[in-house]
Simulated assay, not measured.
Amino acid sequence: MDPQPASSPPASGRIDGWREFQDRFRATLAMASASAGECRLADADFAHWPLGERAVTDLLQQWMRQHSSARVVLLAGQFDVLQRAHPRWLSWRQTWSHRVSCWAASDEIVADVRPMFLWREQGADRAGIRMLDSVTAVGQWSTDPAILALWQADFDAYLQRSSEGMPCTTVGL
């Protein structure tokens, strides 16, 4: 009789609640910061994200310094909550604006943009988090390439119907 193969860890799992979403985001960001790549974040307003935490901005700072090809793409429905709730992240973003792009979702898709975080390394999706219902805070995390490809396609479709937003500086008279 052949021995049973060792079970591999699951490629996907459920997220129940904003706290679990935040914990999963921090853990995935920590994994991503060990290598060059791109992080993609999407949300209507980023109200539930831990972007303003010192540990998160320190991790992003370290990642950018260690990997010259590290990039962040952020897509938001509106930026006012992000600007009020995460001033530390805004300061970090100003420093790295040449490698952090911010996009504003068009009015026609803003209601469809749900919290999503994708980490890509060398052109391949590695991990992702997506909230399926923002009201009940139920979501999914995954390392399954098929699921990540679908999420990446959604993100790309949102990006195609968006425009650059939230400039780092205000030009005025």
Rank of each mutant, 00 (worst) to 15 (best):
D43M: 06
W141S: 02
S142C: 03
L59C: 15
S91G: 04
S68N: 07
R161P: 00
R71D: 00
W119N: 06
L173C: 07
V113S: 06
E121C: 13
E108Y: 07
R40M: 08
E38L: 14
Q94H: 10
D133P: 04
T28G: 13
R54F: 11
A85E: 11
L59D: 00
I147W: 05
D107W: 13
M166K: 05
S91V: 09
T136C: 10
T57I: 10
S101T: 14
A149T: 07
L132M: 11
L132F: 02
S106A: 13
H67T: 05
A124D: 10
D58L: 09
Q62R: 15
T143L: 12
M1I: 08
Q61R: 14
Q94T: 09
R99E: 00
L29T: 08
L29R: 04
A127Y: 06
Q61P: 00
M116L: 15
P50V: 09
L75Y: 05
R161G: 00
C39H: 01
A76Y: 06
G165I: 11
S142W: 03
W49A: 14
F155G: 01
R114L: 10
S7F: 08
L74W: 12
V138H: 13
Q66E: 12
E121W: 08
S68P: 02
L41M: 07
A105T: 01
A42K: 07
S8R: 14
T95A: 10
S12I: 00
L59Y: 03
A104Q: 15
I109R: 04
V135C: 09
F21T: 01
D125N: 14
V73D: 08
T143I: 12
A153Q: 15
G172N: 11
L74D: 00
I147F: 03
S134Q: 12
R161E: 06
V56W: 06
R19P: 05
E108M: 09
H67R: 07
S101A: 13
R99P: 05
S163Y: 05
V138G: 00
A30G: 04
L82Y: 09
V113H: 04
T169Y: 15
R54Y: 06
S33R: 11
L51R: 07
A127I: 05
L173E: 06
A42P: 02
H86W: 08
P145R: 09
Q94N: 13
A47H: 10
F155R: 01
E53A: 15
P5E: 05
W89Q: 02
